[in-house]
């Protein structure tokens, strides 16, 4: 779907070639005082320029149209026709789905952890209490009555531990299964990445075509101020933090930076 590499190059070269020829002719006519012929040459130059321009604008329009068709960018509102869901809006739906899936998995995992944690803590506490009693028994500091009580507690503890262990084991399994979102979201994100890549390629081709139009028409663009990001606005997680100077790569670097500021 990518557009041809340098579509306007030939047209632009043709135009420049004819411009050069005509210019020589023009100089000849002017030097020999043949002004009516000179005016005709100027006219011819104009015509050649217009032809090239029309040609390029036409190509640009076609390329734009193709890009829109290829990506089915949602123009149904703008153009008043009913289109199917575009690839772009499909992509944002898909990303929403990723957010949903990760949200659900995170909450499911936390539910399970919150349900398991008290059981584990309880086993730990009861085992500690029983250990202390057991040590007393081994030091022969325990009366028979107390021992009967201890043995009942140990029996109950073993039963409870068995049940808890089975519950926790099931929940650990469920936590593992809750990570299946990685596979699904991975696939979705890969598709969206491919789309973004395609869009980028086509945009680059369009920009190149527009450049040819500018060249034929002699349009020059001033450097429009590049949008400067205010640090005020959050930017989210930074990629490749470990190879960048302006980004910290972990809590230690944050701490170093803050302490260098007197924190």
């Amino acid at each position: 779907m990518a557009l041809s590499k340098d579509p306007g190059q030939a047209t632009a070269q043709q135009f420049e070639h004819s411009l050069k020829e005509h210019a020589l002719q023009l100089v000849d006519y002017l030097e020999s005082g043949n002004f009516s012929e000179a005016v005709l040459v100027v006219h011819a130059i104009n015509q050649a320029r217009d032809r090239g321009l029309y040609h390029e604008v036409g190509q640009l329009t076609r390329a734009l149209h193709n890009a829109i068709v290829n990506f089915q960018i949602d123009t149904s509102h703008a153009l008043g026709d009913r289109g199917e869901a575009s690839r772009i809006s499909d992509a944002s739906d898909r990303l929403d789905y990723v957010v949903q899936l990760t949200d659900r998995a995170a909450n499911r995992t936390m539910d399970l952890v919150e349900s398991s944690a008290p059981m584990v803590a309880d086993i730990g506490q009861e085992a500690a209490a029983l250990s202390a009693e057991w040590a007393r028994l081994q030091r022969r500091e325990m009366a028979a009555e107390e021992f009967r009580d201890l043995s009942r507690r140990i029996g109950a503890f073993l039963t409870r531990t068995e049940q808890s262990a089975s519950t926790v084991s099931t929940q650990l399994n469920d936590i593992m299964i809750a990570q299946d979102y990685q596979d699904l979201t991975g696939q979705v994100i890969k598709r969206v990445t491919t789309l973004v890549h395609d869009v980028e390629e086509s945009l680059v081709s369009l920009v190149r075509m527009a450049g040819t139009v500018d060249r034929i028409a002699g349009i020059e663009h001033g450097e429009e101020g590049q949008a400067k990001k205010a640090p005020e606005k959050g930017e989210g997680p930074q990629m490749h933090a470990d190879t960048r100077e302006d980004v910290v790569s972990g809590q230690d670097e944050v701490d170093d930076l803050l302490s260098s500021l007197g924190f």
């Binding site: 640090p231 930017e235 989210g236 930074q238 910290v248 930076l257 803050l258």
Partner: peptide
């Protein structure tokens, strides 16, 4: 998640 040095300085 904001990890730019400028941002940390700004927050400080």
């Amino acid at each position: 998640a904001e990890a730019k040095r400028d941002q940390i300085i700004e927050a400080a």
